[in-house]
């Protein structure tokens, strides 16, 4: 083999290798492998634990979705004993004063607004169920958990959960915040929660005691079949 040929082949390999690395880098910059992130338990290593309330702020991590911006969400709930995942989708809107609104569109329309004071459920027929947080501690737990998460209030979370942060190896300067309830597991509280995002929050996942998993994915709401803001807060 002539030396020119060798150089040529070597050059191709080199190019391929470069391409491979470059494309790998590019891919790493653009794509999240959600299953891999969810399967990775190293997030809960002691080294990743966050103990100070301003630790996330320092890292420049914004747990909450952008206020006032309508997002689309898809929820997949995998319950071990059910033959298919329970899937729902709709729109999400955060308002600092009025709360976090989940406007479910599929499989049936329903609306849920979470504030620190109450969880309001609006049914198809327009009827409303208000579960006040000062009446029901479970509602209060959930409302407080969700509003802490969606307003980025870490100090509340730090009290009930051990909080972990992982940034290494995440695409797009992304981050994973993991939470585990302190002490023994309690009914109604998830076993672990992960918040995954980069410039914004992209997924929230819950795993409960029996291993059932819920994944909520947020994305830009390009087309809205109805005025989400009006339905949420003016209806």
């Amino acid at each position: 083999m002539s030396s020119r040929k060798v150089i040529k082949i070597a050059g191709r390999y080199l190019l391929a290798l470069t391409m491979y690395f470059v494309s790998g880098l590019v891919l790493a910059q653009t794509a999240w492998d959600l299953d891999a992130v969810l399967a990775d338990s190293t997030i809960f290593d002691e080294a990743n634990q966050v103990t100070k309330r301003d630790a996330l702020e320092i890292e420049g991590i914004r747990l909450s979705p952008v206020e006032g911006e309508v997002l689309a969400f898809t929820q997949r709930r995998k319950i071990a004993i059910l033959s298919k995942p329970l899937q729902s989708s709709g729109y999400f809107l955060l308002d600092e004063d009025k709360g976090a609104c989940w406007a479910i569109a599929r499989p049936f329309p329903a609306l849920m607004i979470i504030t620190k004071e109450a969880i309001i459920q609006r049914n198809r027929d327009g009827s409303e169920q208000v579960m006040s947080t000062d009446k029901n501690p479970v509602v209060r737990e959930l409302a407080s958990l969700f509003s802490s998460v969606f307003t980025g209030d870490v100090s509340d979370i730090l009290l009930s959960f051990d909080v972990y942060l992982l940034r290494d190896g995440m695409p797009k300067a992304g981050w994973v915040v993991g939470m585990k309830p302190k002490g023994k597991n309690q009914y109604g509280k998830p076993k672990e929660i992960r918040l995954i995002g980069d410039s914004t929050l992209r997924w929230v996942t819950f795993v409960n005691q029996s291993g059932d998993q819920t994944v909520i994915e947020f994305s830009a709401a390009n087309d809205q079949p109805f005025d989400v803001s009006a339905r949420c807060f003016k209806g």
């Binding site: 929820q75 709930r77 319950i79 329970l86 959930l142 029996s210 059932d212």
Partner: peptide, 30 residues
Amino acid sequence: LFSPLGVTDSLLLQYDPQLLFVDFLKELTE
């Protein structure tokens, strides 16, 4: 079952698919 805040669990669902026990506990705590 479908709401983002739903409290569900395989163990509970298996022997109480209507989730009436969860409903009872909810009222009880309230």
